[in-house]
Structures are given as structure tokens and as C-alpha cells.
Design a protein around this nucleic acid. Structure first.
Length: 305
DNA sequence: GTTGAGCGTT
């Protein structure tokens, strides 16, 4: 069969373009997508009805009787159906805090309850073969990854954390993490996880021990983390301040002075959620203010008046 | 008392 031209348009009403076929009479999908980005196939009218063309891996095959004089137009994938390129992909996950005795079999057995595993490693000293107390796993399904992140894991009698590793930037923790300042000792990691869980899935909470007046909260979704920055929130009666988490190493005198002075003019956004959650526990004399039944942004809670 | 523990021999 020799090369011929097939008349193709994007939609039935659009201007057609002639596309060259291959020697075997087929039309390469790449030839089609060069003109119609995102097209996944071709169809045509046959006796008033739509008829689809057979598709192999990389090419569209002509109708049984040949291309003929038909006018073809493109089929497009439904945008709301996740495809391989659209669906979030699993990343390697680091498992921190493994007991020294725990080996791959135990790790695999434990995490298999979340979903199929593509990889399990326990890192060991090359000389002694002793576990370094951490390892890596990878799930086949993103849902399983979501389920495993965002909670702690009791493995061989020890609490372990699952996180997205530092090295593989791209979904790095940097933009997903917020700094929570002005914490009091009464705020536990569980308190913070529960409170911030209402804004989006929390994948990690860090509360320094011994006590320091701050914490870190990491979200799965960077947009959630970024949206909270700059706000004050009231958690169990404690007014905390949320800001961006600066990278661990580079600290040198946070050159935020300019940013802070610029922000001062704007009214602070102050939230308390859930509205009455903290009223049932011990709280300060300032609780007399009945701010807490107001919608989140209706009335700021001013700790110092 | 407002910036964190630990991160991958191939």
C-alpha cells in the first residue's frame, strides 16, 4: 500500500488537515497528535452513525474498506479520568525509627496491609551488617502511599515514621511544611495533628523534646501549607503563629526583617477552629471573650488587648 | 524560650 493522505479535523465542524499515512496504510498516533495535541484516536460518520477506528499501541488502523473519502475527526480522552501521566505517582518512602532487630521481612509484612509493595529495604552497615534503624519502601498504588503517610507505625514494638525522603526533591518537604511558633507545653503533637488535619492531610508533626516554643507541621499538599502561612490560629486556647519553615541548615539571622515590616500594615488573619474545641479544657482568663463561636475570620482573637 | 534527628555503598 502506498502513502496517501487522510482528511482529519479536530471536531466535526473544524477545518480539516490532510495527514500522511505510513507504508502499511496506518496513521501514526504521533502524526495525529502533531496537529491535534491530546487526541487519542479517530472516528468518522458511517451511515449517520459515529464509527471509531481501531487503535494499536502507536497507530490508528484504517477501516476495513480503506480510508476512502471519509472525513475523520479526533477522539479525545475524558479529562476527568486519571491517566498514567495525570495520576500522582508513588515515590520511595523512608521508614525512620526501625528497631535494630527488624529486617526486611517484617517491614514488608507490616506495610503489605496498606497495599502492594514494589520495594523494601532496611539499610545496614556494610561491614557489620547491623541495621541502621531506617529503610525504604515503595508502594504500587498511590492510595496505599497516602494511607501509610500521615500516621505512625508500630513495628516490632517501636513507633516508626514514614516520610517522603529529603533527597528526592520535587515533592520535598520544604513547601509542605509550616513552622508553628508560640507553642506552649500544653500543645501535644496529637493536638496539632488533630487541629491541622482539618485543613488537609498531615504527614508529619514535629514537637521538640525537651520543650521549645515551636513545632513543625507537614502537610501532604503544599498548597494547604502555603495557605496557612502568615496566619495566627488558636488551638486549645493557645494563640500560635504559622510561618514558612526555613531549611534546616541555612539559618544565619533570618533576613526576614524587610518582609515582616511589610506585613505589619495588614490586619493579621486569626483563626480558631474548631470554634469551641478548646473551651472544654483548661484555658486562660482571656476565655471571657466569646470570640470562639464566630466564623473563622469574622473576629480576631486578641490575646493582648 | 519562634526553625527540626536519624535520609539511600550498588
Amino acid at each position: 500500500m502506498s502513502i496517501e493522505y487522510v482528511v482529519v479535523s479536530e471536531g466535526e465542524q473544524d477545518e480539516p488537515i490532510e495527514l500522511p499515512t505510513e507504508e502499511d496504510g496506518s496513521l501514526l498516533l504521533s502524526t495525529i497528535s502533531a496537529q491535534f495535541v491530546g487526541a487519542s484516536g479517530l472516528k468518522y460518520r458511517a451511515g449517520g452513525r459515529l464509527r471509531g477506528l481501531r487503535l494499536t499501541e502507536d497507530r490508528v488502523l484504517p477501516p476495513a474498506e480503506g480510508w476512502g473519502a471519509h472525513r475523520y475527526f479526533c477522539a479525545f480522552p475524558r479529562v476527568d479520568i486519571p491517566t498514567a501521566t495525570t495520576r500522582p505517582r508513588c515515590s520511595d518512602l523512608i521508614v525512620l525509627g526501625l528497631p535494630w532487630k527488624t529486617g526486611e521481612e517484617t517491614v514488608r509484612e507490616y506495610f503489605s496491609t496498606f497495599g502492594d509493595l514494589l520495594m523494601v529495604q532496611v539499610k545496614r552497615d556494610t561491614k557489620t551488617g547491623l541495621s541502621k534503624g531506617f529503610g525504604f519502601i515503595k508502594f504500587a498504588e498511590y492510595d496505599a502511599q497516602l494511607r501509610a503517610l500521615g500516621r505512625r507505625h508500630m513495628i516490632d514494638g517501636r513507633w516508626c515514621d514514614v516520610r517522603i525522603p529529603n533527597s528526592k526533591d520535587g515533592s520535598s518537604a520544604a513547601h509542605r511544611k509550616v513552622f508553628v511558633g508560640r507553642c506552649t507545653e500544653s500543645l501535644t503533637a496529637d493536638d496539632l495533628r488533630e487541629y491541622f488535619g482539618a485543613f488537609g492531610q498531615v504527614t508529619d508533626v514535629f514537637v521538640p523534646k525537651p520543650f521549645r516554643a515551636f513545632s513543625f507541621v507537614t502537610f501532604l499538599d503544599p498548597e494547604v501549607a502555603q495557605s496557612l502561612c502568615g496566619q495566627d490560629h488558636v488551638i486549645k486556647g493557645v494563640s500560635v503563629n504559622i510561618s514558612t519553615a526555613s531549611p534546616k541548615r541555612e539559618h544565619s539571622g533570618r533576613s526576614q526583617l524587610l518582609g515582616w515590616s511589610l506585613l505589619e500594615g495588614a490586619a493579621p488573619r486569626v483563626y480558631s477552629w474548631p470554634p469551641d474545641a478548646w473551651q472544654h479544657s483548661a484555658h486562660s482568663a482571656h476565655s471571657a471573650h466569646s470570640h470562639s463561636t464566630a466564623p473563622p475570620d469574622a473576629k480576631p482573637y486578641l490575646k493582648y488587648e
